[in-house]
């Protein structure tokens, strides 16, 4: 690389030949290398992690039926149902019927913790085009998987209920995050993302098989 031919200290006191001046080719190379380094620096800045990517959740993925093992818990999806409306019975036997302009999607999930009790935050249905549908607020969280503690030693089963346009069903995945602390937010919490296996045919079956009324709640 260098055209310098230094002599080693102590070997001689005779001045050794110094370099020939850098060639034009080498200078051009240095300029190109400099531009390349500057461009690389800009490019690295451009791909620097966004706020959400740095502090967001670490995601473990899987498919419907799989047991997806994340760092603090494992989760699985055991079934997906469609419904045109949901009938909710509360503890006082009051009945409400929730409707939607789209379709209710009820995802049956189970989970177990590895060491410490965990609690799920609001689940998200992630459509194939990247749109994120939060779990519907028409069903109280106490009736869904976000209510019970997920504990070690056994599987806790529950549902997550979404409200989506029919067009968002194909290729949809469910995302199950953990709740975060109230005051001290923890970064990079584990979450699982499970593909619901809704290809075109399965989507059609889900829509065709959607129940008119899906009952929830009430005394068990």
């Amino acid at each position: 690389m260098s055209t310098v031919t230094p002599s080693r200290p102590g070997t001689t006191t005779t001045p050794r030949p110094a370099s020939r001046p850098p060639s034009r080719l080498r200078r051009a190379g240095a300029v190109i290398a400099g531009i390349a380094l500057a461009a690389a620096a800009v490019a690295v800045q451009a791909v620097a992690l966004e706020h959400e990517d740095r502090l967001g959740n670490l995601t473990w993925t899987g498919r419907i039926g799989d047991e997806v093992v994340a760092s603090r818990f494992s989760a699985r999806v055991t079934g997906v149902h469609g419904a045109k409306s949901i009938q909710i019975t509360d503890v006082t036997d009051k009945v409400e019927k929730a409707t939607t302009s789209g379709l209710f999607v009820i995802v049956e999930v189970g989970a177990t913790a590895h060491r410490e009790p965990q609690k799920f935050g609001p689940p998200v249905l992630l459509a194939e085009d990247g749109k994120r549908y939060a779990a519907t607020d028409k069903v109280k969280p106490s009736l869904t998987i976000t209510h019970p503690y997920i504990q070690p030693g056994w599987w806790t089963e529950g549902v997550a209920v979404f409200e989506v346009p029919v067009a968002a069903l194909t290729g949809a995945r469910i995302v199950l995050p953990l709740t975060n602390g109230f005051f001290i937010k923890e970064a990079n919490l584990p979450e699982v993302e499970i593909d619901l296996g809704l290809d075109d045919a399965a989507t059609q079956r889900l829509i065709a098989g959607a129940e008119d009324v899906y009952p929830m709640g009430g005394k068990k």
Binding site: V4, P6, P9, T13
Partner: peptide
């Protein structure tokens, strides 16, 4: 005048 010492390596 010249300093008769080992040249510094250029890097």
């Amino acid at each position: 005048p010249a300093i008769p010492a080992a040249p510094l390596p250029r890097h």
